[in-house]
Simulated assay, not measured.
Amino acid sequence: MRFHTRKWIKPEDLNPNGTLFGGRLLEWIDEEAALYAVVQLENQHVVTKLMTEIDFKSSASQGDIIEIGIDAVKFGKSSLTLRCEVRNMMTRETIITIEKIVMVNLDKQGNAVPHNKTEIEFVGDRLNA
């Protein structure tokens, strides 16, 4: 799992219990998945189609730093399936895992279109090609 993003938990990220608000975390995960798909598919027109079960294992508190990890699991014809894990860097505990996030490649009219990708590419490799 590659951990691409770190977030510092601030007061505005907390729920009334003083822990990380789940909706804020899901917003960050969705954004990270979209960014990952945009880079991999080389297209800014991608949408989230599906997120499987969301099961919180632990939480984070103000001042904690979390990491969001994303891995590509499968390239479909017009989709990219990702897996996500979020962990608390302070406690080393997994906060959440999402086994399946499906992102869909779109044309400018919003229709699903093939992306012709079959494996993960790194930007550095594209620049050296």
Score class of each variant (00 low, 15 high):
Met1Ala: 09
Arg2Ile: 08
Phe3Ala: 10
His4Pro: 06
Arg6Met: 11
Arg6Pro: 08
Arg6Lys: 11
Lys7Asn: 12
Lys7His: 12
Trp8Gly: 01
Leu14Thr: 05
Asn15Phe: 08
Gly18Cys: 03
Gly18Pro: 01
Thr19Leu: 03
Leu20Asp: 00
Leu26Val: 06
Leu26Gly: 02
Trp28Ile: 04
Ile29Asp: 00
Tyr36Thr: 12
Val39Ile: 15
Val39Glu: 15
Gln40Asn: 00
Leu41Phe: 13
Leu41Ala: 10
Asn43Phe: 05
Val47Tyr: 15
Lys49Trp: 06
Met51His: 12
Thr52Pro: 03
Phe56Ala: 04
Lys57Gly: 11
Ser58Phe: 02
Ala60Lys: 01
Gly63Ala: 06
Asp64Met: 04
Ile65Leu: 09
Ile68Ser: 07
Asp71Lys: 12
Val73Ile: 12
Phe75Met: 09
Gly76Cys: 09
Gly76Leu: 08
Ser78Pro: 08
Thr81Ser: 13
Leu82Met: 07
Leu82Asp: 04
Arg83Pro: 04
Asn88Met: 09
Met90Phe: 05
Ile95Asn: 02
Ile96Asp: 01
Ile96His: 03
Ile98His: 05
Ile101Ala: 04
Val102Asn: 02
Asn105His: 15
Asn105Ala: 09
Asn105Ser: 13
Asn105Arg: 07
Leu106Met: 15
Leu106Ile: 11
Gln109Gly: 06
Gln109Asn: 11
Gln109Val: 05
Ala112Pro: 09
Val113Gly: 05
Val113Met: 12
His115Cys: 10
Asn116Met: 11
Asn116Ile: 05
Thr118Pro: 04
Ile120Lys: 12
Ile120Gln: 14
Val123Asp: 13
Asn128Cys: 08
